[in-house]
Design a protein around this nucleic acid. Structure first.
Lengths: 172, 172
DNA sequence: CCGGGTAACTACACGGGTGTAAGACGCTAC
DNA sequence: GTAGCGTCTTACACCCGTGTAGTTACCCGG
């Protein structure tokens, strides 16, 4: 299990949304960071891995053209009905209720549905989030290395400058 | 097949939407009346039965929390890909494409989907529209009868008034 | 031909979700 | 302690879909 926590901007970057969205969703109670919530200017939100998964689900639903109010309903429903851990293979939204399926019963559920059903396969979600996490941490590592190399180079040229001043002092 | 055409208000009434919505959808090109489009103030839109079915589909998608832009995409796609007559049992929206299924292939489609799938069973649509049509025409007939009865009663009392005036004229 | 009714059109308001920019605050390094 | 940076917060504006109200134009009956 992944016990890292992620900043707001990292989380947004990982799941592919804007910071504005993340912020709005937090302040309107769609999804708040589980590890650390905001408490005024300067405080820091920390999102857990599970939060990232939920964010990604929201993002996917949004991409599928589902309205935010509906998404709010879905998450409210899932939180009311505890034990709705995202471990299944599919989330199926049927009118006002949400069903978790793992492949076999999926067919039955679909047969009975009379309204519009929204079927969201979770398999891709975890993968995609994981991939973005590694590519993000890769980018961070690269950046750090580049910064360090830069610092070293600056240090080196400073040393050279000192030496040249030592050999040819007062050349101007 | 139903060859009637329906006014804007009737259509709205039948499919369960507001006239404002119908109007907006027509003016923004989501769905225009096939039988007669508007041509300025005072003109009359006429919707065909098929239009009603499409309107009902839109209504159902809306109820399912799907955003209007997405619905526009779906209908644009269906109109581009001619031969997309609504005869199948299900409409499945998979990302940018729309698939029509009739029960058997539905399962396969769902297995392969990686994004969110919106599954809309058409079975109910026709029924519901038909029911609303008959209940609407019932109401119209009732209203007409009530109006006629009212007129008769008025006629009757007018006759009585004439008679009484004839027997006791100048009683004031 | 004219008056009333109906329906389309226009205009305005409003709420939700998002973009953008500026302000406020805490943390860390020096 | 103070400078700077990252972050949350606030403020404003915009677009879309819809509600509401008033205006315009056609149609039909007299």
């Amino acid at each position: 299990m992944n016990n890292e926590t992620y900043s707001g901007h990292s989380a947004a970057e990982i799941v592919g949304i804007t910071y504005r969205q993340l912020d709005y969703w937090a302040s309107t109670n769609l999804i708040r960071p589980s590890a650390a919530d905001a408490s005024g200017s300067g405080s820091r939100r920390r999102y857990t891995y599970k939060d990232l998964l939920e964010l990604k689900v929201i993002k996917k639903m949004l991409d599928a053209g589902i309205k935010l109010p509906k998404i709010r309903d879905v998450f409210a429903y899932m939180r009311d009905h505890v034990g709705t851990e995202i471990a299944s293979a599919h989330i199926v939204i049927d009118g006002n209720s949400v069903i978790l399926c793992d492949g076999d019963n999926l067919v039955d559920v679909l047969r009975h549905g009379q309204g519009v059903l929204n079927v969201l396969p979770l398999t891709g979600v975890r993968e995609e989030v994981d991939n973005r996490i590694v590519s993000l941490s890769d980018r961070i590592r690269e950046t750090e290395e580049r910064v360090r190399a830069e610092a070293e180079r600056a240090e080196e040229s400073a040393r050279l400058a000192r030496e040249s001043r030592g050999t040819a002092q007062g050349d101007a």
